[in-house]
Design a binder for these strands. Structure first.
Lengths: 181, 181
DNA sequence: AATGACATGTAAGAGGTTACATGATTGT
DNA sequence: ACAATCATGTAACCTCTTACATGTCATT
């Protein structure tokens, strides 16, 4: 492991507030769900490495009979690393939509199968949109008291638009396929 | 290597017409650019494997002084494999937008750096949109003569909407950041 | 009594990228 | 003269996912 997006994502999250690995996972799955993902298989090893390098520190809350809670905080050195990364141009977007691959080869399948794929795509996007909307509301409220929600809120706006666009496409596409032939 | 999306993407492309590995790469980079990507490092090994398994066959055009052109065609067995895959539910979408990760931590960077990221994001999406629009036109023309463009055209429609939504977001986000503080 | 949230972690392997090697032909 | 396109391919590497292991506490 050398330099992955995971490293900076975690560093950035910890720059907002100290957290456990478990919390980081939840945070990504809720607030960042539209544009990034991560798994424990990356989180725990990355935390260990960041700590070893002095970019974060941990405080252990001892628990009996269950895993100790390890709360990580970013250090000055970590902040520097994060800032340096922020100055570098972003990697190009990477998008993988298997649904579209199946739709592209749609003439090889019965119409109703393709429609099913489109419907499932719509369902996934609708549920993401719902979650995004509730996070947006929550953030807007928080923003009144705390400025730190300004940038995260911006990211939520794009997620919202992308999910909406996907849902609209699904409706049109479904109709077009139904009428086809 | 066992079962990757690459395998089925290649199989699907070859189900439309016989092609070389080089052509497959171009096809993906143009018509499928909004929702999938692939590299030669995947294409050539996958072609070899698909051939070994009898899902595709090749015809070699012998060239002197440069690599022989290997034109691959799908077999009956390959069509069967493709059709079986089409019946299975699609994997959930995977999206990675590093720009948004940087924006999310925007308070750690000067405003103009974040604006720069947003502008570059817009440029990438604008150039993708342009390409998508010209492919759309081309496909619409072809569709008059050949039905096989129907499904690919559907996929282009989503790409178009997603790029447009991204561009619009960039404009709004840029303004909001400019006004911020 | 069952489910879900809390909380840590690892090993193996799938999936994908990058850099390298090679070089003729075609277009500007 | 230079750049882009045509055309193949591999080895090393990196990133990330999945399945497994473990068990408590709070809620319904």
């Amino acid at each position: 492991m050398k330099e992955s997006i995971a490293e900076y994502g975690i560093l950035g999250i910890l720059s907002k507030e100290p957290m456990t690995g478990y919390d980081i996972n939840k945070r990504v799955k809720t607030r960042m769900d539209s544009f990034w993902d991560i798994s424990y298989g990356q989180i725990y090893p990355t935390l260990r490495m960041l700590e070893k390098e002095g970019h974060i520190t941990k405080k252990v809350e001892i628990n009996e009979n269950r895993p100790n809670r390890k709360v990580y905080s970013i250090t000055e050195k970590g902040i520097k690393k994060l800032k340096k990364w922020l100055l570098k141009p972003a990697e190009p977007e990477s998008v993988k939509i298997e649904t579209l691959l199946k739709v592209a080869f749609g003439e090889q399948a019965p119409k109703n199968v393709i429609i099913k794929h489109i419907e499932e795509f719509k369902i996934r996007n609708s549920s993401k949109l719902e979650k995004t909307l509730s996070i947006e509301e929550e953030m807007k409220e928080q923003l009144q008291k705390n400025e730190k929600y300004f940038f995260p809120l911006l990211t939520v706006l794009l997620g919202k638009s992308l999910h909406k666009a996907s849902i609209e496409w699904a409706d049109t596409a479904k109709e077009l396929v139904s009428e086809h032939k």
